[in-house]
Computed example of a mutant assay.
Amino acid sequence: MSIQIAFPRFLRIGGGTIDDIGDVIRQLGLQRPVVVTDKFLTSTGASERILTLLREARITPALFDDTVPDPTTDSLETGLALLADHNADSVIGFGGGSPMDTAKALAVLGVRGGRMRDYKVPHVYTGPALPVVAIPTTAGSGSEATQFTIISDSVTDEKMLCPGLSFLPIAAIVDFELTMSMPPRLTADTGVDALTHAIEAYVSRKANPVSDGLALAAMRTIGQNLRTAYEDGENKQAREAMMLAATQAGMAFSNASVALVHGMSRPIGAHFHVAHGLSNAMLLSAITAFSVKGAESRYADCARAIGVATEATGDGIAAQSLVDSLAELCHDLAVPTPRDHGIDRTRWNDLIPLMAQQALDSGSPGNNPVVPTVDEIAELYVEVYD
């Protein structure tokens, strides 16, 4: 069995490691990074903190803070101009999944050019790109350790999955203290996002022994800490555990891929502008119930890792416990249905054929234990609405 594993060259993990950013950039031999972030982090002073740390290390940074939630092809244009004007030799993605996805896209387009559509699946890009250093501020996307970026086409609203080693950050700083101010809703959504990454990596048809270990470790940690982080955002132990688990889950799915939940989640985000973690949460229980028959023992392992079954529990009962526990978790975290989130039923139903086809075309459903037809995906969209 031959498997290919790819991680960032190195990570610095722990409270206060954000202060190491200047040293990290110098260690990589870089001098002119563009810090890619959003207006919120600029408004809090966090962006200026990064810039100051870089300048103190005799680095010459520039700031791009025009990233948007669920970044689009149009949102990249100003950033590309700044890369050229600054003569940038690197990109620092600072924020949640959207700034990091933007940073990865800019790193590739800034060197290779073309359209983002040129890089979407089934294409896998391994060519020239600026080095990316990732600094996550949420415990969820795992983007600091993945060889993917997701950008929405501004013309078609298609949420494009763009894979390849050139999108993998060269280094990451994983500082849980940056997540201490996350509100409960964001804590819940990003936490379920990380859990989804871990479960889908473990049951993926591309799973391997390396991704399995990381996925199971992430699930154990999330099972023990997500509710605590949601209920008590000042609990440092829970915040630190969730941050590490999100990175482990990112490493897992980067090397095993995701499956049907993510395939169906992306069109919801693209057409209804639902945050990625939340759209995953809306789908997780129903898609798991649909998929269990294809890998019962694997889902049973997930149940044991999360802590809702024991080694003595039979696989069938354990797998059903997982489905039930995911529904209970989402209830406890106040995850809304698409209806409760305010999505219009008629528009949802009208878009189901397109969303089902886009989900299938993304490639992720092909990794699922039960590979669905486009009609089965459409039926699942009908089911999860209520």
Rank of each mutant, 00 (worst) to 15 (best):
A289L: 04
S47H: 12
L11Y: 08
T137G: 04
T288C: 12
L168E: 01
F290W: 11
P136G: 12
A295V: 02
I92C: 08
L161R: 09
L76N: 09
R26L: 14
H273V: 14
A103K: 01
G213A: 14
R345C: 07
F167H: 06
D157F: 06
D361N: 15
E177M: 13
V36T: 06
R266I: 05
S141R: 01
S43E: 09
M116V: 03
V36L: 15
T146N: 09
R55I: 07
G110A: 09
D74H: 05
I352Q: 03
G223P: 05
D232M: 11
S254M: 00
D20I: 12
G314H: 14
H273L: 13
D74K: 11
A103Y: 00
T288F: 12
R55N: 14
L260E: 04
H123D: 10
R205P: 10
G16D: 03
G164K: 01
D332H: 05
L351Y: 03
S279N: 09
A57L: 10
V384I: 13
S291M: 10
Y385C: 05
E383N: 11
F253Y: 06
R26M: 13
G342S: 00
E56A: 14
M160H: 00
G277N: 04
V374D: 10
P69L: 10
N235P: 05
G233K: 00
R205W: 12
G314S: 11
Q147F: 04
A275G: 09
D386I: 03
L351A: 03
T52Y: 12
W348N: 07
L333V: 02
L83M: 00
H197Y: 13
Q358R: 14
A188C: 00
G45F: 09
A312G: 15
I13W: 09
Q31C: 04
F272R: 11
